[in-house]
Structure formats: structure tokens, C-alpha cells
């Protein structure tokens, strides 16, 4: 298939998944803040830190109040990773490959975009819980429609890879939010408040119920293990990366365990490493440090995929300006 088309379907899915996860992201913080004991100040800055765009935020908004942060992450069209910007980009990508995807998929993306766009035009504070719920659901619906109406061909696999890599990256970051959220003091570690925060985190990744079935008791190492290493839960990083690898091998036709390009090699290495890691290994490195490194390794896989399959079109012998702009917007992982 055309390199540009593969690139667009990959990013269409990444952007939809990103919009969903930003909604999860903000939602978890909204919930956490509701559970704070009275007198403790709300913390919104950690959320911005984990996006990696703190400098941009401070330059534009200054103080990290709830309103500022929520607006920045939800509706700010000048911030390329806000929910609205993601959907705008998803829709542009979908439009450029309309004849490749099913018309049902296009309709979902179109409706999804209009849903958030209309919400952004209302000036109300009470819409967010409902909006985030709708955003998550619209994203699921898109994935379902794509699964059920598009041939599971090369393009579909590129789309899956985009979605799964994005999800892995965002699960990583959501887990990292907890690292940055400060408890009032050290003696709160292991307190009911601490536990409530871990529960909120599980809920924000729709993992609470599945976690309970697998591990019962809520302890930090258990939550981290579930979200990083579990092989069955569809939002765990390990699950997402193994599935990405499967899609990649479907595209190239090479068998698992071998490789024919740099993307397969990088992803294969990462998957085997993660496959043989225990939660003790993770804590030995330090949770935050581990998550941070994992993020850059996933970024590297993304870069290798782009280099192997899409650069056919981005790196022409005579580069055109318009192409560069498009690439810059899309290679905005952190």
C-alpha cells in the first residue's frame, strides 16, 4: 500500500487512542482530587509534568489550576496533544484515506470530532465527567467499527500498531502520574488515601475489575505489575507491545523470533526483555526510572516503524515543505 496511506492510518489510530487516553488521564486526576481530605491543596501540575509539555503550558497559562490544566488538555487547539487537536488531526488523516477505510469508520471519526468540537463551544464546567466518558466510549466504538467493517489487511495492521503503541505509551504515563502526585507526607504511604489513589488509577485505565479478579488486594507493586507486565489485560504495556509485534510480523511476513528490518529488531528486543522482567526487577531500577526508559524505547520503535515503512514518502530525494510540516505534527510522541 502507499506509504502515505500507511502513515495516515497509523496516525489516525494513534490520535484517536491519544484522545481517549488524555480523557482517562484528566479523569483520573479529577477523581483523585475529589478524594483529597479537606484542607489539602489540589495538585494539577503533576498531570502536566507527565505529558512532557510543562514548559509549553507554563508559558501559555502560568499557574496550574484545575481550569487551566483541563482546558489545556481538552480543548486547546494550539496544543497539538489536546483532545480536540488529536481529533482534528485524526479526522484530517481519515479524510486523506477515506477510500481506504470503511465509510462507517469515517462516520465515527467525523461524529467523534463534532462531539468534542460542540462541547468546546459550550462554556460550562459541569460537562467534563460526561464528556470524558463519551470520549472514551467513542474511541472504543471507533476501534470496534474498524475491527468489524475493515478487512484485516496490511492497512488494518498498521492501524492496530498505531493504536497499541499509543496505548502502551499512555498506560506508562498514567502509571507515572501516581509517582508525581505527592501525598501530604511520608506517613500517608499505605494509608487509606494512598490506597484510594491507586484504585482511582486502576479505574482510569478500566483495569479495576480485572485487577481484582487477578490479584484481589490492592498494593502498589501489584498495580504496577498488572499495568506493566500482565499478558492478558488489553491496556497493559506488555500486552500492547506483544500485539504490536504480532501485527508487525503480519505486515512483513517474517516469523516471530526473526527480523527483516530495524523496526522488527527493536520491537522484538523490547518484547523479549519485557517478557522476562519481573516486578522485582522493575522496583530495583525504580518505578519512575523504569517507566521513563520504557517510554524512550517505545519512541524508538515508533521511529523505526516510520523509517522502515513511511519514510519512503517522507524522505524523497527532493523534500517538499508541506511534507515536513505533516511529519512534525505526527511525530509528537512526548
Amino acid at each position: 500500500m502507499l506509504s502515505r496511506v500507511a502513515d495516515s492510518i497509523y496516525w489516525l489510530n494513534r490520535y484517536i487512542e491519544r484522545a481517549e487516553n488524555v480523557a482517562r488521564f484528566v479523569d483520573v486526576n479529577l477523581n483523585l482530587m475529589l478524594d483529597l481530605p479537606s484542607g489539602v491543596t489540589q495538585q494539577w501540575r503533576p498531570l502536566v509534568i507527565t505529558t512532557g509539555d510543562l514548559a509549553l503550558f507554563e508559558e501559555r497559562y502560568g499557574e496550574a489550576t484545575a481550569d487551566n490544566v483541563i482546558h489545556f488538555l481538552t480543548f486547546d487547539l494550539d496544543y497539538p496533544n489536546s483532545i480536540l487537536s488529536c481529533l482534528h488531526a485524526a479526522r484530517e488523516n481519515a479524510r486523506s484515506i477515506r477510500e481506504i477505510i470503511s465509510s462507517e469508520m469515517w462516520e465515527e471519526v467525523n461524529t467523534f470530532y463534532h462531539l468534542v468540537k460542540e462541547a468546546s463551544e459550550q462554556n460550562s464546567h459541569n460537562i467534563f465527567h460526561k464528556l470524558f466518558f463519551h470520549v472514551k466510549f467513542a474511541s472504543h466504538r471507533f476501534a470496534g467499527v474498524m475491527d468489524a467493517t475493515m478487512s484485516h489487511n496490511e492497512g488494518w495492521h498498521f492501524g492496530q500498531m498505531g493504536r497499541l503503541l499509543e496505548r502502551a505509551d499512555k498506560t506508562d504515563r498514567i502509571l507515572d502520574v501516581k509517582y508525581f502526585i505527592l501525598l501530604p507526607s511520608a506517613k500517608w504511604v499505605g494509608s487509606p488515601l494512598d490506597r484510594i489513589q491507586w484504585i482511582a488509577l486502576l479505574k482510569s485505565t478500566s483495569a479495576y475489575e480485572m485487577y481484582r479478579k487477578a490479584q484481589h488486594r490492592i498494593v502498589p507493586s501489584g498495580v504496577a505489575e498488572f499495568l506493566i507486565l500482565n499478558r492478558e489485560f488489553p491496556r497493559s504495556i506488555n500486552f500492547c507491545l506483544q500485539e504490536t509485534e504480532r501485527c508487525l510480523h503480519q505486515i512483513t511476513g517474517t516469523s516471530k523470533g526473526s527480523w527483516c528490518n530495524s523496526a522488527e529488531r527493536a520491537l522484538g528486543k523490547l518484547c523479549s526483555k519485557l517478557g522476562y522482567t519481573t516486578i522485582e526487577d522493575v522496583f530495583e531500577v525504580g518505578l519512575h526510572q523504569f517507566l521513563d526508559r520504557l517510554q524512550s524505547e517505545m519512541n524508538d520503535v515508533d521511529a523505526k516503524i516510520s523509517e522502515t515503512f513511511f519514510s519512503n514518502y517522507t524522505m524523497s530525494s527532493e523534500p517538499l515543505e508541506s511534507e515536513e510540516t505533516q511529519t512534525m505534527t505526527q511525530v509528537m510522541v512526548s
Partner: peptide, 18 residues
């Protein structure tokens, strides 16, 4: 296709695919 998908190689018009 868009123009950027096409390139002249070896005297023929070609499209860039994966």
C-alpha cells in the same frame, strides 16, 4: 494518490508504497 506519493524512477512513474 497525491503528487508526493509519486516519483520518476528509471524513466517510469512510480508510487511509493510500504
Amino acid at each position: 494518490v497525491e503528487g508526493r506519493d509519486l516519483v520518476v524512477l528509471d524513466g517510469y512513474l512510480q508510487m511509493r508504497t510500504t
